[in-house]
Amino acid sequence: MTAGTIDGTAVSRKLLAETAERAAAFTEKAGRAPCLATVLVGHDPASETYVKMKRNRSRKNGITSRAVELPETTTTDELVAVITELSNDPEVDGILLQHPVPAQIDERAAFEAIAPGKDVDGVTMYSFAAMAFDLPGFHSCTPGGIMRLLDAYDVELSGKHAVVVGRSPILGKPVGMLLLNRHATVTYCHSRTTDLADQVGRADVVVAAVGKPELIKGEWLKPGAVVIDAGYNPGNVGDVEQSVAAERASLITPVPGGVGPMTIAVLLEQTVSAAEATI
């Protein structure tokens, strides 16, 4: 058996086209385009590249991007003040604080300064609680994108065993909540899991989100499992041993071109949703 490919590029293209139509409709009705404010602290090259890409993608889909760039020496109080000002600005619909921030900043305090209605990246405690309780709110973008991919490929989740490898607050933990809300039985694994191979081997759906290249071996997989590789490591390597996994899985996301394109597509879609809520 050779796994089918879950094409995140194609799915994201469709979502972005729908988002652009909604952005145009909002612009016509409101007299302004939806606005995403991006906040970048310091000069991390990867972060600068990501933010630039998000701004370009915003512009191509009818969303205004407001860039806020702060020096490496910014304090927590200074960053919180900037984010609070953006939260109170009626011309800003969504706020994205690029991760990671410099070590002297309390990142959680900065995230919590984002107004819930503008948390289009799904990073606040409010958004996590909304995900956990299956209430209206913004999803963390990568988990939200993963769910869109599973839906696009008609992956049945109810009653299935999903194993999430990773427990980060913006990927592993929230994707587990979203899967649980779809009636999957969810097991979280992490760096202290002693029987990782056995846990993965029982999974109908595997979500790898740990940030360690090829940690998940293909031979561990149950034949026919669906594999979502949310890892991205140097050299275009994911968290799953793709070559072997593709021989056992029924569906698998490639790296790159799987989960990655969905993250920004969900970010922009949620920005438009935030804008629409203002009129």
Rank of each mutant, 00 (worst) to 15 (best):
Ala37Ser: 12
Asp89Lys: 10
Arg55His: 12
Pro102Ile: 10
Ile83Ala: 02
Asp106Leu: 05
Pro102Val: 11
Leu96Pro: 09
Asn56Gln: 15
Met53His: 07
Phe111Pro: 07
Leu40Val: 15
Glu91Ala: 15
Thr73Asp: 11
Glu107Thr: 13
Arg66Glu: 10
Asn88Lys: 13
Tyr50Glu: 01
Ala67His: 10
Asp89Ala: 08
Thr73Met: 00
Asp89Thr: 11
Glu69Gly: 03
Arg55Thr: 07
Ala67Tyr: 03
Thr75Trp: 01
Pro71Val: 12
Leu40Asp: 03
His43Gln: 14
Asp89Asn: 14
Ala46Asp: 07
Glu48Phe: 01
Phe111His: 12
His43Gly: 00
His99Gln: 07
Leu36Cys: 04
Thr38Lys: 00
Leu79Ala: 10
Thr64Tyr: 04
Ile83Pro: 08
Lys60Asn: 12
Asp106Glu: 03
Ala67Thr: 13
Ala46Gly: 10
Ala37Arg: 06
Ser65Tyr: 00
Pro102Thr: 10
Leu86Gln: 08
Arg108Gly: 02
Leu40Cys: 07
Lys54Thr: 13
Val80Gly: 05
Val39Met: 02
Val80Ala: 05
Val80Thr: 11
Tyr50Trp: 03
Ser87Asp: 04
Pro90Gln: 06
Val92Ser: 06
Ser47Cys: 12
Leu96Val: 07
Leu86Trp: 02
Pro71Phe: 04
Lys52Phe: 00
Glu85Asn: 15
Thr76Ala: 03
Lys60His: 08
Ala81Gly: 07
Ile95Ala: 05
Thr64Leu: 10
Glu107Trp: 00
Pro90Glu: 09
Gly94Ser: 09
Glu72Arg: 14
Pro34Cys: 06
Asp77Lys: 14
Val51Asn: 01
Asp77Thr: 15
Pro34Trp: 03
Val39Ala: 03
Lys52Leu: 09
Glu91Ile: 09
Asp89Arg: 10
Pro102Ser: 06
Asp77Arg: 13
Glu69Asn: 13
Val101Pro: 06
Val80Asp: 01
Val80Leu: 01
Leu97Phe: 01
Thr49Leu: 11
Val39Asn: 03
Gln98Asp: 03
Ala103Val: 13
Ile83Phe: 03
Ala110Ser: 11
